[in-house]
Measured scan of single mutants.
Amino acid sequence: TYTWNTKEEAKQAFKELLKEKRVPSNASWEQAMKMIINDPRYSALAKLSEKKQAFNAYKVQTE
């Protein structure tokens, strides 16, 4: 089980997950979700809006 003390740690864990699963920077949210949804870190960020925000930040960083 994973635990995160801060929102920032949770966001980092979520981005690490995207990186580890090699989600391409041109992937849509739907494509990315299919690649990461079974990992416990997918739940790091509770709100869908937070997940999408972190995903978009990840995409910008990896382009």
Rank of each mutant, 00 (worst) to 15 (best):
D39P: 00
R22H: 11
S49V: 08
A44Y: 04
R41G: 02
A57N: 11
S49P: 06
N5I: 12
P40M: 08
P40C: 09
W29A: 00
E9L: 05
P24L: 04
K21C: 08
T62C: 14
Q61A: 13
E9T: 05
K59L: 09
A46W: 12
N5D: 12
A10E: 06
S28V: 07
E20A: 08
F14T: 00
D39C: 03
L48A: 07
A13Q: 05
N38E: 09
N56E: 13
N56V: 10
T62N: 11
W4M: 04
K51A: 04
E8P: 04
S43C: 14
D39I: 01
I36V: 05
S43T: 10
E63S: 14
L48D: 09
F55K: 01
Q53G: 07
T62S: 12
A44N: 03
Y58M: 03
K21Q: 07
E8K: 07
K47R: 09
A13W: 03
S43H: 14
M33L: 09
A13M: 06
E63Q: 10
A32Q: 01
E63N: 12
T1P: 15
P40H: 09
L48G: 05
E16V: 05
Y42A: 03
S43N: 14
E20G: 04
Y2F: 14
N26V: 07
K52S: 03
N5Q: 13
E8I: 06
E8W: 09
L45C: 03
F55A: 02
Y42W: 12
D39L: 01
W29L: 02
A32P: 00
L48F: 05
I37G: 07
L45A: 02
I36R: 00
K21W: 05
S49H: 12
W4G: 08
A57H: 09
E9I: 04
K52E: 08
A46N: 09
K47E: 14
A13N: 05
R41K: 04
M33Y: 08
K51R: 08
T3F: 12
V23A: 01
A32F: 01
Q12G: 08
Q31D: 09
Q12E: 14
Q61E: 14
E63G: 11
V23K: 03
K19V: 15
R22Y: 07
Q61N: 11
A27K: 04
A27P: 01
L18Y: 00
N38W: 07
Q12F: 09
N26F: 09
E30T: 12
F55E: 01
I37A: 11
R41S: 02
T6G: 05
Q12K: 09
T1N: 15
S28M: 07
E9G: 05
K15V: 14
S49I: 06
K47A: 12
A10Q: 08
S49D: 12
A27L: 08
P40A: 08
A46V: 11
R41W: 01
A46Y: 09
Q61I: 09
F14L: 02
W29T: 01
N38F: 09
E30Y: 10
P40G: 06
